[in-house]
Each structure stands twice: as structure tokens, then as C-alpha cells.
Amino acid sequence: MEKISNYKRTLGIITISAGIVSAACIFLGAYAVEYNFEAFSEPTLMLQYVHNHKEAYWFLLLDMAGYYLLLLPVIFYLHQQYQYQSPWVPLFTFSGLAYVLTGAIGAAMLASTWPDLMQQYSTAPEVEQHAIVLAFNTLTHLVTKGLWNMLEVLFAGTWWIGFGIMLKRDSKTIGLLSVTAGTACLVDSVGTMAGWKIMSELGVNLYLVLGIVWPIVLGIRLIRQSAFPTAFHAPTTSSYIKNQTHAKV
């Protein structure tokens, strides 16, 4: 029991850290573009802030950690807790892992290229700046619209909505936050693919907020429950089979 309690406490701390790091990512990103939020939807504007290339680099590293990699433990935790409650759980877990890996890969790609391109742009002669702008825009659109706002959010929506429905049985608040975050992701994806800018921006902005709130709320709950290791206890295999048998009958 003590090991389970320590595990939950550590998991809660890591999950809360994901939300805090995500919030720091947003603040640093805003600082990097000097609070010109249009720069996030129009890559060319980013090159007006080449003097903030270090801030842009750390913004992307925080994004990779907070919105993605620090969620890995809770993805596996949810799988362990609910693996016997639905045959769809493996799909939901795969979607969560795909969301994290797709998003983290995109952030790593930008972190490894943005600072160099921004510095090159600031020192390059005017005739070469056009080529740098073209490369910067192409790479940014590939990641932000392709990997993030089309593919990643599809996985995220499936993961959050799938587990959100099951989480509602234990906590209506966390379940509702999960379903709302997942819906926001799907709205972003559909809006991006259909070219509906207002719809996609509404979805991504809501996702960015809930991507901070959700892990903090869940993490706090896990820490509070660490004193009660049986909370959020997954049903056994036998109980799952029993429930399935009753359902067939």
C-alpha cells in the first residue's frame, strides 16, 4: 500500500509539473514575440523578433516537456486503471501516446531549427533573406498545421474524450474537463483541415488553456488520494469478465 501511495504522490507531482511547465511555455512564448500573438498564426512575423531567438528556443523546449512528455506517466496510469472497463482502452492509450510523441517531435524540430534560421535572417543580406523566410515558413507550417493542428489534435481528442467518459464515473469535474479538452482538440483539427480559421483558433486556444488546467487538477486529486491507495482502483479481470457476461445475458 505504501508503494502505491508513493507512486500516486509522485505521479501527481509530475502531472502538476506538466501544467506548470505548460503555463511557463505560454508566458515565455508571449514574451518571445513581445505579446504580438498574431505571430503564432503568421510565421513571417516571428522573424521580426530574431533578437529573442533564445527565448523562442526555450519556449519550444518547455512546450515539448509540458504539453507532451510530462504527460507520459499519467497516460500509462490511466491505462492501468481503466484497462478492464472498456475494450477501447488500448486505442485510447495509443492515441495518448501518439499525441505526446507527435507533438514532442514537432516541438523538437522547431527548437532545432528556429534559432538558427532567426540568427541567419538577422545577419543575411537582403537577397538571401527571402530564401530564409521561405524555409522558415515552410518548416513552421509543416509542424504547426500538419503535425500539430491536424494530426496531433486528432489523437489528443480521442485520448481525452475516451478516458474522460470513464473518468466521469470517479470525478465529474475531471471527466468534464477531459471531454471538453478533447472536443476542443477535434474542433481545432476540423477547423484546420476545412480552412475555417475562427473555428481552429477557438479550438486551439481552449486546448492551450485546458492543457494547463487539466493536469494540475488531476495531479492535485492524485496527491490527495495518495493517502488512500484504493481510490481510483481499477476493477479486476474477473470482475470485467463478469460484467461482460451479465451484459451479454
Rank of each mutant, 00 (worst) to 15 (best):
M1P: 14
K3Y: 15
K3R: 15
S5E: 13
K8P: 04
R9E: 00
I14P: 05
I14F: 00
I16Q: 05
G19Y: 05
S22C: 06
A24L: 15
I26S: 06
F27V: 14
G29S: 06
G29I: 10
A30F: 13
Y31F: 14
V33N: 00
V33H: 00
N36P: 03
A39W: 02
T44H: 14
Y49H: 02
H51G: 10
H53C: 08
H53Q: 06
H53E: 08
E55Y: 10
Y57I: 06
L60A: 08
L62V: 04
L62R: 04
D63E: 13
M64I: 12
A65T: 05
A65W: 09
Y67C: 11
Y67F: 15
L71V: 02
P73N: 05
V74G: 07
V74A: 09
I75K: 01
L78N: 08
L78Y: 07
L78S: 08
Q80Y: 12
Q81L: 09
Y84P: 04
S86Y: 00
P87C: 00
W88N: 13
W88S: 14
V89H: 00
L91V: 11
L91H: 02
S95F: 01
G96C: 04
L97V: 12
L97T: 04
L97P: 01
V100D: 08
L101G: 03
G103K: 00
A104F: 04
I105K: 09
I105G: 12
G106Q: 01
M109N: 05
T113Y: 11
L117W: 11
S122L: 11
A124S: 12
A124R: 08
Q129G: 07
A131I: 09
I132N: 09
I132D: 05
L142S: 14
V143M: 09
T144P: 06
W148P: 08
N149D: 15
L151M: 14
E152Y: 02
E152W: 04
F155Y: 07
F155L: 08
W159P: 07
W159V: 14
W159R: 11
K168T: 11
K168W: 11
R169D: 03
R169I: 10
S171C: 02
K172W: 06
K172D: 01
K172C: 01
K172V: 13
I174M: 14
G175L: 09
S178C: 11
S178L: 04
V179C: 03
G182N: 04
G182W: 05
G182I: 09
C185L: 08
V190I: 15
T192M: 12
T192V: 06
T192F: 07
W196R: 09
S200K: 13
N205C: 03
L208A: 12
L208T: 06
L210T: 08
P215V: 05
I216L: 01
L218K: 01
L222I: 11
R224L: 07
R224W: 03
Q225I: 01
T230S: 15
A231H: 03
A231F: 00
F232P: 01
P235Y: 08
P235A: 11
T236H: 11
T236W: 09
S239W: 10
I241E: 10
I241M: 12
A247Q: 08
K248M: 14
